[in-house]
Design a protein around this nucleic acid. Structure first.
Lengths: 233, 233
DNA sequence: GTCGAACTTATTGTCAACAATCTGGTCAAC
DNA sequence: GTTGACCAGATTGTTGACAATAAGTTCGAC
């Protein structure tokens, strides 16, 4: 084939995003081996690019790098997922608190708008738009809080949760359970009640933790997982 | 000539720890350039090792990596230091809460012991042993909580704070201010009062934040940037 | 005397070949 | 039938040379 080989720092990003994508779409399952040569052939990049990308992903906790044995998709146990969510709870709590203190009038209005659209989505049973709004909500809160450090940590943590997020979103009755929680968060921030905002976020993520605790089996590498795309907590 | 060149993955660790050390001892100042060849000569490792170590450090937020321009020690502004401490507050709060719930009788006794020794150190004006006990306390709480994820994040955050920690500890009257806060944390955990433990940790770190806010010079702790580029010739 | 352009040097980025190591399987001995 | 050693193939780790780029410097024109 023609030598379309993407080279260098570009290649590194190609590999990194390709693996991320494959990871979140379920094309790569936890525990799966990632052979450098294979990836460099498939993606038409040099092995160096693959190596560096794998280092990046390992630093983010998405893959596990064992010396002389290569890389594999990291398995995240239910217990670890719970701990991740506990960390998210306090960090997002911090963001929500600050957002309630700092948000401008326009930002509060924007939040209220997201709340309205969430209500509508759930009413219409539109799961995918609800999930989009969900992400928007969390992103907006992080943005409004001005907490760049916390936001960075949260991005990291969420990246590790891709696998569990969509499992949860599929549970029947989940939206009707999480909607009022989301609305409570929004209301507290709009009203500028910082402690209430922090508490509301915690209530929400505590309920996520309870769902996780009810999850069967560990992060065991089921070879066959047919799962829909689309996520949300 | 004795070619003691440490090679490969070992070299990578050598570089990584050497830079960390230099960073915390003040031998390397924020903004300073890190030239690959220079480091590989000084430390007797290959340039590859240096490169990889720099990637690691960049992933941890200790150095900044600009494409085609090399690496420099990352400058952490006072504002960022405050945000880092805010994150620490909630994450350590989580750990303290769990520790209060989960600690065994022996662990509670150990904490109480640390508290006694802290009191003694401050009474004797022994700053260095107080600082050691301080680290022990935080480590013990993280350990007891079983929160591996939070602990990992905290390690990261503390790594970025080396420069400021050093400065804060030197402020006169600081120990007599922080001692009662530490004792309050210990007491809450020993008594198993989870909410109080979380609150006590927050009080403590809020006071650290107030110290940071009173730090002069918004930018780097010392005026190194200017002397870097402009001074000579 | 100052500004700008070409040149030189210092430094990082890339690559492909080579070396070291691990995995899995085969075969012989007990 | 099971255990152990050994061999072959696959995979990662390392290296040094080379290419690409940015910074610094000199020289000439105005």
């Amino acid at each position: 084939m023609a030598d379309n080989r993407v080279t260098g720092q570009a290649g590194r990003r190609v590999v990194s995003t390709a693996i991320r994508q494959a990871l979140s779409s379920g094309d790569m399952v936890p525990g799966q081996r990632l052979v450098e040569q294979e990836l460099s052939d498939t993606l038409s990049v040099t092995r160096s690019s693959v190596r560096e990308a794998l280092q990046d992903l390992a630093a983010e906790g998405l893959v596990e790098l064992v010396p002389r044995r290569g890389a594999r998709v990291r398995v995240i146990s239910v217990e670890e997922a719970i701990q991740i969510t506990e960390c998210r709870a306090v960090l997002e709590g911090l963001c929500a608190r600050r957002a309630a203190e700092l948000a401008s009038a326009e930002e509060r209005a924007e939040l209220a708008g997201i709340g309205d659209r969430m209500r509508a989505s759930v009413a219409q049973g539109d799961l995918s738009s609800y999930s989009v709004l969900n992400r928007q909500l969390h992103a907006a809160i992080a943005e409004m809080s001005g907490q760049k450090v916390a936001d960075g940590l949260l991005e990291r943590l969420k990246g590790q949760m891709v696998r569990y997020q969509f499992r949860l979103a599929l549970r029947p009755g989940r939206p009707s359970q999480s909607l009022p929680q989301h609305l409570a968060i929004i209301e507290a921030i709009v009203l500028g009640d910082a402690p209430a905002a922090e508490a509301a976020i915690r209530v929400h993520l505590d309920s996520v933790i309870r769902e996780l605790e009810a999850t069967p089996g560990g992060g065991a590498p089921d070879a066959h997982e047919d799962e829909l795309e689309g996520a949300g907590t």
